[in-house]
Structure formats: structure tokens, C-alpha cells
């Protein structure tokens, strides 16, 4: 059984269909990526899993539990977290406070443990622990956003466009860290427009187009797919 199973998920905003009955699964211990253009429904998928967007129909099952209509807090408690699009660190809190708030549901002992683990992954955050998060650079904020999510000690982490607006070198850093997180046993569901780097990192890829999943396969295979090369990797026919 997969850790996360999405069955025929449909989401509408008013009369507009954002997700038109998508089905996919995330196996435990894997990195899965959903790629697609703007407006394909990638973010909506993640937001509906976290209970931020009401679901029209379909089911979301995580670790054998149905998530439909569940409180976001309960979902976080079960070890499923989301790194939101655009980082969304709390600019008025220090780096350390941002991390602490990521572990809001953890007790003190776990907090210290998680904090050390995060500092090991991101030594830069330790250097800047006293600094207001709003004054960090874009790359540092992304690291903070990922670190903050890890503070909840998750079983599975979902990331919404971690490469957005970052320099290529920083993107490389972030993705190597995503791999390390995964190697430590955390399942990763990644959403990207940067199909190249996402497919290179992921075990399995799903391609989304206007509310539907149109293509599935191992990451490396999708990289070689002619259609994908044309649509997402900038190759001309």
C-alpha cells in the first residue's frame, strides 16, 4: 500500500474546475514529482491534501487514514507537512523562532533533537539564528522554509516549487538537500515547473495538464520522453 493515495480527486473554485478527478499514489520512502505548467492544478493538489482547500469529490488517504475534511493541524500531527509556494517564512520572527514554530506540535525534547538535525542540514541557519527571517536572502529563506517543515518531524514532506526564483546554484543545493532528506527516510512529494531538475531527482514523475494527469513514469524515463522534452525542457521539434 502506498503512503499517500489520491483517488479521483476533484476540486472546484466556484464554477471553475481546478482538478478534474486526478488519481496518483506516493510510495513510502520515495521522491515523487508532479510537473506541469502554470494553472495545471499542482498547488491545488497539495493544498487540498493539507485541508486548505475544500474537496468537491474523491478521496485522499494517508497512511491508511482518510484525510477528506480533516483539520490541517491533525494532518500535521500525523506527520504530513507542506512547504508552501513562495517560502512564506514569518518575516517578523527570527530564524530560530521560525524553526521553533515549525515544531509547534512537538514537545521540548523532540524540538531540540529536530533543531540539531536541521542545523546539520543547513549550517547557514545556525549562523543566522538570531536574524529576522524577513532579512534573509531568497535561498536562505527557502532553506528556512524546508528546515521549518522538518521541525515537525515529518514522515512525508510536500514541497511547492522549492526552486522558484532562486539562482541555479542555489537550486542545485536545495535539491541535493532534498535527496539527503529522502535518504534519511522521509517521503517527498515535489511540485515543480523546473521539470529538468525535478525529474532528475525523483523516482517517479507525474505530468499534469489543466486539472488532469496525462503522463506517468520513472523520472529518468520521462526526461527522455519526446513530448516532455518539447513541452517542458525547451527542446524544439
Amino acid at each position: 500500500m502506498s503512503l499517500l493515495e489520491i483517488q479521483d480527486l476533484k476540486v472546484c473554485y466556484g464554477g471553475i474546475v481546478a482538478l478534474n478527478g486526478i488519481t496518483f499514489a506516493v510510495d513510502e520512502g520515495k521522491i515523487i514529482t508532479l510537473i506541469g505548467a502554470n494553472g495545471a492544478g499542482k498547488s491545488t493538489t497539495l493544498r487540498s491534501i493539507m485541508g486548505l482547500v475544500p474537496i468537491t469529490s474523491g478521496t485522499i488517504t494517508y497512511n491508511g487514514v482518510k484525510l477528506n475534511g480533516m483539520d490541517t493541524r491533525k494532518i500535521v500531527e500525523m506527520g504530513l507537512v507542506l512547504v508552501p509556494e513562495g517560502r512564506r517564512v514569518f518575516p517578523n520572527l527570527t530564524t530560530l523562532e521560525n524553526l521553533k514554530i515549525g515544531g509547534y506540535l512537538q514537545d521540548k525534547a523532540h524540538e531540540q533533537q529536530s533543531l540539531e538535525r536541521v542545523y546539520e542540514l543547513f549550517p547557514r541557519l545556525k549562523e543566522r539564528h538570531w536574524q529576522l527571517a524577513g532579512t534573509l536572502s531568497g535561498g536562505e529563506q527557502q532553506m528556512l522554509a524546508v528546515g521549518r517543515a522538518l521541525m515537525a518531524n515529518p514522515k512525508m514532506i510536500m514541497m511547492d516549487e522549492p526552486s522558484l526564483g532562486l539562482a541555479p546554484l542555489v537550486v542545485k543545493d536545495i535539491f541535493s538537500i532534498i535527496k539527503r532528506i529522502n535518504e534519511a527516510g522521509v517521503t517527498v512529494l515535489l511540485i515543480e515547473q523546473n521539470a529538468n531538475v525535478a525529474l532528475r531527482t525523483a523516482h517517479t514523475g507525474y505530468v499534469m495538464e489543466t486539472g488532469n494527469i496525462t503522463l506517468t513514469g520513472p523520472g529518468r524515463e520521462l526526461l527522455e520522453n519526446e513530448e516532455i522534452k518539447f513541452a517542458y525542457l525547451g527542446k524544439s521539434k
Binding site: M50, L52, T72, R73, V76, E77, V81, L82, P84, R88, F90, P91, N92, L93, E97, K100, I101, G102, Y104, L105, R148, A152
Partner: peptide
Amino acid sequence: TKTGMAMRAVSKDFETAKLMGIN
């Protein structure tokens, strides 16, 4: 305090605060 930290977080961003497990 933790509650105070949550207050400051909520004052900036409802949705992200929710994602942290804050009520």
C-alpha cells in the same frame, strides 16, 4: 512564550500558521 510566538506568526500569515499546526 510559545503562545506569543503563535500570535506573531498568525498576525503575519494565517495559512502558513495553519500549516505549522497552529490552532
